[in-house]
């Protein structure tokens, strides 16, 4: 199991799977630490939000910090006032689901000074080589640099979430290792974990380091 810092930030290219990884991380963190929160700071996308899993999260006793407008018809780039508790509450550990790309990461800039000053955080880049605009290491690096410039927090690690939706197999994940290693080499950052659907995680045992099974998965029509 992963050791969690005070704040775990998840950034990445739009549609790379940040929310899914974040929600699953919150459940893992909750097992190790009582006072756990998940914060949704997405100001770009009104759909596919942490709030979609609010019921499951609340039942598990995980605090959900999210704009009350997420998932409603009000398509406003709103942030929840409770977001300041992420940095203010020292006895609460948070998983922070940041909006996609540099535009999404802009909102994080509001907290960057406090986060960096405290220094008890992980800033993770969620990567997926099957997304059309981050298919290789170079284009992924470009997105990383844009995000860092927007939120003023340097990345500390990578989450390889390479998948192709419902057609993902163990092979898909194994094939993505080379890409993840290349991003790691170019950025000088470690691949902290490889996140995969739970049923595939079993197959990857012993083949991939730090496999993170995604138990909660939203299905599509």
């Amino acid at each position: 199991m992963k050791e969690y810092k005070h704040i775990t930030l998840l950034c990445g290219h739009y549609g790379s799977g940040k929310t899914n990884v974040a929600v699953n991380m919150a459940f893992e963190l909750k097992k190790q630490y009582e006072n756990t929160a998940i914060a949704d700071l997405d100001i770009v996308n009104p759909y596919f939000r942490t709030r979609d899993s609010e019921k499951d999260l609340a039942e598990a006793g995980i605090r959900v910090i999210c704009s009350k407008y997420a998932g409603t018809n009000l398509d406003a780039p709103a942030l929840p006032p409770e977001m300041y508790s992420i940095t203010e509450m020292k006895d609460m550990k948070s998983i922070v689901d940041v909006g996609g790309d540099d535009r999404g990461a802009l909102a994080l800039g509001r907290l960057s000074a406090a986060i960096v000053a405290e220094g008890d955080y992980e800033m993770l880049m969620v990567i997926n080589c099957h997304r059309p605009l981050t298919r290789d290491a170079e284009s992924t690096l470009e997105v990383m640099r844009e995000i860092e410039a927007a939120c003023r927090i340097p990345f500390t690690g990578l989450v390889n979430n390479s998948n192709i939706g419902r057609e993902t197999t163990a092979e898909t994940v194994l094939d993505s290792a080379e890409y993840a290693e290349e991003v790691s080499r170019l950025s000088g950052l470690p691949v902290v974990m490889t996140s995969v659907r739970e049923d595939i995680a079993v197959e990857l045992c012993g083949k991939v380091n730090n496999v993170f099974p995604l138990k909660l998965q939203k299905s599509i029509v």
């Binding site: 549609g15 099957h130 997304r131 290789d136 094939d175």
Partner: peptide, 16 residues
Amino acid sequence: MADKVLMKGNEAIAEA
């Protein structure tokens, strides 16, 4: 790399 990409419907329209 892989033959298939994971796309949003909107992105698929744009790339197509």
